[in-house]
Design a protein around this nucleic acid. Sequence first.
DNA 1: GAAGATGTGTAACAGTTGTTACACTTTAGA
DNA 2: TCTAAAGTGTAACAACTGTTACACATCTTC
Lengths: 215, 215
Amino acid sequence: MNLEQCLGCGKISKKEREEYFNSLDAIIKNYKKGDYIARQGDMVDYLYILSEGSVKTEMITESGGILGVETIVAPRPLAPAFLFADNNRFPVDVIASKECEVALISKESVMKQLSTNESFFKSYMAFNANRTHFLSERLQLLSIKTIKGKLAYYILQRAKNGLFDLELNQKELAEYFGVARPSIARSFSEMVEEEVITSDGKILNNDKLKNYILS
Amino acid sequence: MNLEQCLGCGKISKKEREEYFNSLDAIIKNYKKGDYIARQGDMVDYLYILSEGSVKTEMITESGGILGVETIVAPRPLAPAFLFADNNRFPVDVIASKECEVALISKESVMKQLSTNESFFKSYMAFNANRTHFLSERLQLLSIKTIKGKLAYYILQRAKNGLFDLELNQKELAEYFGVARPSIARSFSEMVEEEVITSDGKILNNDKLKNYILS
DNA sequence: GAAGATGTGTAACAGTTGTTACACTTTAGA
DNA sequence: TCTAAAGTGTAACAACTGTTACACATCTTC
């Protein structure tokens, strides 16, 4: 899910990239730290590609305070989904957190590329599809309210032949679920206690495991 | 976000729709209640459009129990994002919950339409863009842990000139946030108590309101 | 193989939310 | 206008999770 994928080109030098952007009629803009790249409510009429630097997105604060939301590091498109949305406006402020280079590709140019450059098309579609996939996954996980439920869902997704591998350690799981680390340990050991799973990765009671997700 | 939007055609009769599907080389399939339309892990090689009926998505249960996930009512595409995803497999079982008609349009035909039919293209892109937008919104809201935080985020999104309108009643808000109704009432009255908002829709302290989102 | 770093198990307590129940207010319809 | 339905305010208690702290295990590196 990066710049190369999105543009349908492999790893290239900075010079090659510039030539490539030129062929797309891109406007290259440079920003200093603290510059606003876009403001909440601005129309998204271009495909914004952050080719150098990093940005953070923020909600507006009328009276001083600032609420950080997310940091995005190059290379990555900035709001690729909004370009074709009905409400095609930036949902947040986008501010350079260091020196940035951004390529703006007009909607028309993007559409032309999409229809003439199969590689570009496939990459663009795959990027958005993967993002939807990612968001759906995260949403389903977050909408499960209990930690045991999240764990059960997570385990069932990775289960094979009654065995599972968590892949992440407790600290990483906690971050992924948005919960506290000791809470993961507690829930996990309770599930072992209740003979639903074993601590070494076996599923003992599939139905009970699924029931965690519901309740 | 419906069939018409997705296909780039207005409201048409069933006969017209069938002709339209024919022009897309669609395969029309009919299912009875209880039939499996797709199984978890099946490849998504077609654009599935549910034109009649309704389906529910389920996680598999090896030993009897069933875990419902979501109900989808016609007309709507079924897994439009997965068609172009890298991991293009159904994430869940899809089962007819009444008599259904599904149009399967091959990936090739979809790509052909996308490049030759601007209306189809725009509708398809808008559908996916809007879905991404929707998912991002929901995810951001759900990732806020406290109810006061969710309320603050919700209010700030709808705020204008220091005023806000919740638009939903408490019961609807509770469902939207995935929390209990009395908890909404409690959090709301605490925020009024703390002189951050008034119960009739004024924002008294913008910064405190944003702080709820963080903590 | 000793030492620090990383990962895990666990406990006590605080904080937030869910559950249930009920009173009250407002709205919509007869 | 009266009534039923829908919406809201609130309280007591249960349940779950977060916080903090510490013990112990395991892994890495010199």
